[in-house]
Design a protein around this nucleic acid. Sequence first.
DNA 1: ATAAGATACGGACCGGCGGTCCGCTTCAGT
DNA 2: ACTGAAGCGGACCGCCGGTCCGTATCTTAT
Lengths: 201, 201
Amino acid sequence: MPVSAPDPSVPPERKPRKDAVRNRAAVLAAADTLFTGSRRPEDVTMSDVAAAAGVGKGTLFRAFGDRTSLIRALYQERLGPLTAAVAEGPPPLGPAATPAERVPALLDALLCFKLDHRHLALALEGTGADSPYGTEHYAHWHALLRDLLTGLLPPAEADFTAHALLAATRADLVEHLAGELATPREELRARLAAHTARLLP
Amino acid sequence: MPVSAPDPSVPPERKPRKDAVRNRAAVLAAADTLFTGSRRPEDVTMSDVAAAAGVGKGTLFRAFGDRTSLIRALYQERLGPLTAAVAEGPPPLGPAATPAERVPALLDALLCFKLDHRHLALALEGTGADSPYGTEHYAHWHALLRDLLTGLLPPAEADFTAHALLAATRADLVEHLAGELATPREELRARLAAHTARLLP
DNA sequence: ATAAGATACGGACCGGCGGTCCGCTTCAGT
DNA sequence: ACTGAAGCGGACCGCCGGTCCGTATCTTAT
């Protein structure tokens, strides 16, 4: 007699065990450290992450499913503040700003994020199999940017322009310019700002 | 008494064996077919290529060194005609054209090439380890485009703009738009042309 | 034509990776 | 304390890129 279903909707869904959440956090922290400290993301292996987190491989895969999902989870977590600032923060990033000032602010914020988390972004976009496109994450940013551009440009061009602008902040391009060519941060920001401005008068 | 050195410069350098050149060609052909027919480039393995070419793995690796080099060789070969047209062909692609007409022509040609060789371009750019940037191939196109742009734009912006324009024709973006979203070829070309035009008045 | 040497062939083999499995441990509700 | 479920961990698997080396084939000099 299953009388005591405290929540009649959605399947039971117990709360996770304490050790599980601890291990999950440990794995995320370890992965962040390892990616940040590695020159190429693909030479930090899943075994490395497990070892660095003081956890067995089974645990790691149980918690995250596969390599790609681990990287995505980590990326989303780090991106959280920016996502929040865009969704409900003050201008020029937040929704109160006009499109004309929000678009450059958005792109600048994205560039800065990739500069600050180069290795992680590289790991995410370079995970071979799955291209950046097709992730909900990309769809989200593209839709936002497209909508903002729709009043500033001939409407037919907004969609492609959004793609093109996002392509200009791809992790491997940023890595190439900032990392290998050692372009100073402020110069990169200025270049991207100029490029953006050139597209919307 | 080594009297008969027909060419006194550069080390002897015999001409390659007949079977070697035949096998090399067979491998390139097989690889092209396999990549073209596969949905994701990374699930055509080196063993697949060797088998399809009727050749042992040792032969394959002896001829090309490694996977990346094989893909690059194949890509360069297919790109040959375009390279030639740019280097010495008639306007608007060739050197006789003015920069203002050559830039859009170049980008359109590049886009068309990627549309026609999506799988191959995807294989090249998605080979995980090595980013597209840093290959001499990319350096070549970027330098050409940058030089053309220097005169049409404030000189400080030419370099970054060249990167941004090339980023708009990245293989995975093209695949996303033309493949998954099924954007018609002509529309894509129009979008890229409009985008290019917007950057240089 | 033939012998001799260089070159290429091919597939068994290797190290390491992402991912799975399952006996054992640890937690949470009673 | 008791018990069943959830989590743990590391041996294990299949596969892939890449190497190795005994053998077959081509080229060149005679």
